[in-house]
Design a binder for these strands. Structure first.
Length: 886
DNA sequence: GGTTTGCATGGAT
DNA sequence: TATCCATGCAAAC
């Protein structure tokens, strides 16, 4: 883009340019100043100011080394930094300091050069320095008329909210900022008008583009601050209002000539100032060579702003990222911040929570909760309009972008992915990019060192992963991913960060997401009783239910299929030898299954026994499964080291892969929700699937199951209270034998006599037969030894706190958490007149290889006490004795 | 009934 | 301890 003018852009020169003029500093219009060969060379050598501005104002001395630094022009903008205590420091010295700031995100020239009306020039030094030196003060909080300090809500509140959205000019910004500068409203309005008229911009632009200070400044250091004399440019030149409109919120920056953003292009001498050639190490705004990036002509992160941000919000852009964003344009990209999407962010609510400091640093100031519309461009160039707003929160604010769902979906993002915000200069457009979680740098998000932060490359649409590999966002999927996330987080050193502010909220990586395609139902199907736990038994309808108090663990996933005889079978992989063994379809396996557990097939109860499946058959067996899963399973087969990876949650994850939706093996699909239930089973478990669909028992339902469940619930709660009480007593009295009224297991190694415990029949018994609403099957008996011990005043809320910590650890807790989530969903889905009873079926297996089924009977509090609105849900773990395999 | 909205809560830092 | 922020949740729609 060659200037029509043939003379050197340096007005001190006026020489003719060559046909291929040398490029100088970035103009606000986006072009580069075109210089004659001589000036270009001088500029390239970094002597431009020395040569042409020697007699200009703005020269100051570095407070540290005393070196003279020109501070008064667009070219020198990044050669110094402002000191909090006043004065300047050259970049060489600045980098030696603890917080190297190659230049404030808000360049001093913003202030020095901003052509203010005379009546505004009384802005005190104090106010500037305070703004500059305190708190999170990114460029936008620069002492500019266009900038306002953050953390001054009181000021914000005083200012009438007045955003001219139609024009794209954020008057509020101006008003607020002026307010922050103790300007009276009249001045604000006047100034805003001028701003709208573009006169200010024109003046500013003129001044800046000529690369000269354009200010009349006292020669004494600091005088500029006191007397921000304005050039006459305000009146001299009509505006060129090409900026400040596209992105209203960005007007501070744009109006000030974008120099606060990436002013790094001001000296693109040593390297073509192509924005896309963003230098890798941006963490400190100083490149790895120790040279300020301005030397490289590369945009840098707004260092000052970013230094105020938590590391996890630091933008980590690769060249490819930048290339994606900038496309083929010559725009300069200024990375602002990034954020890993939380489940909430990626959810359907469409609200993206913005880090407060980021929002206040890079988005326009808003004084009203309603905020203002924000135009954001994605990496494809598509524009989105979000509502940038905040909520009052703990005397603070919580900033959100509303209406992001379409954009998020368009980008096909989900929790764990990272959205990036950057600014495109000189347009000032806010650009929202993204990285899929798989391309997240290997380093910890919170690792402030960030030495390996460029270990990823994709940014975008072009590199989208297969959507099918993404975790489901639906309820069940979410629950499941949480559960699996334990594994994923544990298998990596990466610490849960953004997503994991709560322990049970887990960051997902797309690699994991493949594995996390697990539905609630499927997760249930893997539940097993904790090892060495002996259930108590309750009989409903003649069928015995085993009840476990501790949370279940996860069982071994299998692959269901049908054999030649048309009989359903399942295949399970031995933990030790990795051979696949055939089992009856109704076999229920513990989390670790080995050939030795294959009691039903003595010939193959040893690992030395050959595998029935040929390689091809195995291939076919695994074929319907997710390829990734298949790969992993086979990989595990080949690599014993991977055995461990298949344990525990990995196991669950693998099953999840195998069992998800269409990928579910056929025979498994037939019993998707409850594999151990036969098709057509009408038990309450099957008629009331965890999905929440299907018939539900009414709250007033008096069927045997509901009655029993209620009774059992009450009993359980009583037991737990007693248990808790006795635990406390025990801890007090030190090893005093428990005086349990209830036969119970207070610990893993404290089994109690039980009528039905370990040696279950190897064949599956019918679990429960009742279930419909009007089912009036009688209860033969409730053999609960706690019959009659019903505490009607029991507080369901105590369920959680009374729950003994399970040795199944996080997994179990997550499963329980998932259960609660599910129940909440259930509760929501029911109108209140419905029973919130759900029986969550769970597979339980004994600790020694025998297997049992248990059903988690989940009862909403309202079920028991409809008059009270207990927010929490309850779970009763009843069990049906079931068969073990082999 | 579902969805949206605005605030509250509490874990994480 | 203060602050941030992810999420819950209830009222409003």
């Amino acid at each position: 883009m060659s200037s029509p003018l043939k003379i050197c852009f340096n007005k001190e020169c006026k020489e003719l340019k060559s046909e291929r003029p040398k490029k100088g500093w970035l103009l606000r219009g986006g072009e580069l100043a075109e210089l004659c060969d001589r000036c270009g060379s001088i500029y390239d050598e970094g002597r431009f100011c020395d040569t042409f501005h020697l007699n200009a104002s703005g020269w100051r001395c570095c407070e540290t080394c005393g070196k003279r630094v020109h501070c008064g022009c667009i070219i020198s903008i990044n050669t110094f930094t402002l000191l909090d205590a006043g004065g300047i420091e050259c970049m060489t010295c600045a980098r030696k300091n603890v917080v190297p700031l190659p230049n404030p995100s808000w360049p001093p020239s913003l202030f020095y050069q901003t052509p203010l009306p005379d009546r505004l020039k009384d802005l005190s030094v104090k106010s500037w320095t305070q703004l500059a030196g305190s708190g999170p003060v990114p460029w936008r909080q620069a002492p500019s008329l266009f900038n306002s300090p953050i953390n001054q809500p009181e000021l914000h509140q005083r200012v009438p909210y007045d955003v001219d959205l139609s024009s794209g000019i954020d008057r509020l910004n101006v008003a607020e900022r002026l307010s922050a500068s103790s300007l009276d409203k009249k001045k604000i309005e006047d100034f805003s008008e001028r701003l709208m008229n573009g006169t200010l911009k024109g003046g500013s632009r003129n001044t800046l583009e000529n690369g000269n200070a354009g200010i009349k400044c006292e020669e004494q250091p600091g005088s500029c601050r006191n007397k921000a004399q304005l050039s006459s440019s305000l009146k001299d030149e009509p505006s060129t209002p090409h900026f400040g409109l596209a992105v209203p919120y960005a007007c501070p920056n744009e109006i000030n000539g974008q120099i606060g953003v990436s002013g790094t292009h001001l000296r693109p001498a040593l390297q073509p100032p192509l924005a896309k050639s963003f230098h890798g190490n941006v963490q400190n705004g100083v490149d790895s060579s120790g040279e300020p990036q301005i030397r490289n002509g590369r945009p840098r992160v707004e260092a000052r702003g970013r230094n105020q941000l938590l590391p996890r919000y630091w933008p980590r852009f690769t060249d490819q990222d930048l290339q994606h964003i900038s496309g083929d344009s010559n725009s300069v990209i200024t990375p602002l911040f990034e954020k890993m999407l939380s489940a909430s962010d990626a959810g359907r609510i469409g609200r993206l929570v913005l880090p407060k400091k980021c929002a206040e640093a890079y988005f326009p100031p808003i004084s009203q909760p309603e905020g203002l519309p924000l135009k954001v461009q994605d990496s494809k160039g598509k524009e989105w309009i979000f509502q940038f707003r905040f909520w009052p929160n703990n005397n603070s604010r919580m900033y959100v972008l509303e209406g992001v769902t379409p954009c998020i979906q368009n980008m096909q993002l989900q929790a764990g992915d990272i959205v990036t915000f950057s600014r495109l200069e000189p347009e000032g457009k806010l650009v929202m990019g993204f990285r899929k979680a798989s391309s997240t740098p290997a380093s910890d998000q919170d690792n402030e060192a960030h030495k390996t932060h460029m270990g990823y490359s994709t940014n975008g649409d072009a590199d989208l992963a297969d959507p099918s590999a993404w975790a489901k966002v639906d309820k069940s999927g979410y629950i499941a991913t949480e559960a699996i996330g334990v594994k994923s987080s544990s298998s990596r050193k990466r610490k849960n960060t953004t997503l994991g502010s709560k322990s049970k909220r887990l960051k997902l990586e797309s690699e994991d997401l493949i594995e996390l395609k697990l539905t609630w139902e499927e997760a249930q199907g893997l539940l097993r009783p904790p090892p060495n736990h002996v259930p108590s038994v309750v009989v409903i309808e003649g069928y015995e239910f085993e009840e476990y108090e501790d949370a279940p663990i996860l069982g071994k996933p299998t692959i269901f299929t049908t054999d030649n005889m048309g009989e359903k079978i399942q295949w399970v992989q031995c933990e030790d030898c990795l051979k696949w063994r055939k089992l009856p379809a109704n076999a229920l396996l513990p989390s670790k299954w080995t050939c030795s557990d294959n009691l039903g097939d003595p010939e193959r109860s040893l690992c030395s026994a050959a595998q029935e499946l040929k390689a091809e058959q195995l291939e076919d067996l695994l074929a319907p499964c997710n390829s990734a899963a298949s790969k992993k399973l086979k990989g595990a087969k080949q690599e014993p080291d991977n055995l461990e990876a298949l344990e525990g949650l990995d196991t669950l994850a693998n099953l999840a892969i195998l069992g998800e939706g269409e990928a579910l093996p056929s025979s498994s699909q037939a019993t998707t929700k409850h594999p151990r239930h036969r098709p057509g089973c009408s038990c309450i478990v099957c008629i009331q699937p965890p999905s929440g669909k299907g018939p539900k028992h009414k709250q007033t339902c008096e069927c045997n199951v509901c009655l029993t469940v209620k009774r059992r619930f009450q009993t359980l709660m009583l037991r737990r209270e007693k248990k808790q009480y006795e635990k406390e007593e025990t801890s007090r009295k030190k090893q005093q034998p428990q005086k349990l009224i209830i036969p119970d297991k207070s610990g893993d190694d404290d089994p109690i006599p039980c009528s039905k415990t370990e040696n279950s029949s190897p064949t599956q018994k019918k679990v429960v037969s009742e279930g419909s609403d009007d089912d009036s099957n009688r209860i033969k008996s409730s053999t609960s030894p706690f019959k009659g011990q019903i505490d009607l005043n029991i507080q369901p809320e105590r369920e959680e706190e009374l729950s003994p910590s399970s040795d199944s650890g996080n997994v179990a807790r997550l499963i329980q958490d998932a259960t609660e989530r599910y129940l909440r969903q259930q509760r929501l889905s029911s109108s209140g007149s419905h029973s919130n009873l759900a029986i969550n079926q769970a597979l339980l297996g004994g600790g020694t290889g025998e297997q049992q089924i248990s059903n988690d009977i989940i009862l909403d509090s309202s079920h028991q006490d409809p008059d009270e609105d207990h927010p929490s849900t309850l779970s009763i773990k009843a069990s049906a004795s079931v068969s073990a395999t082999g």
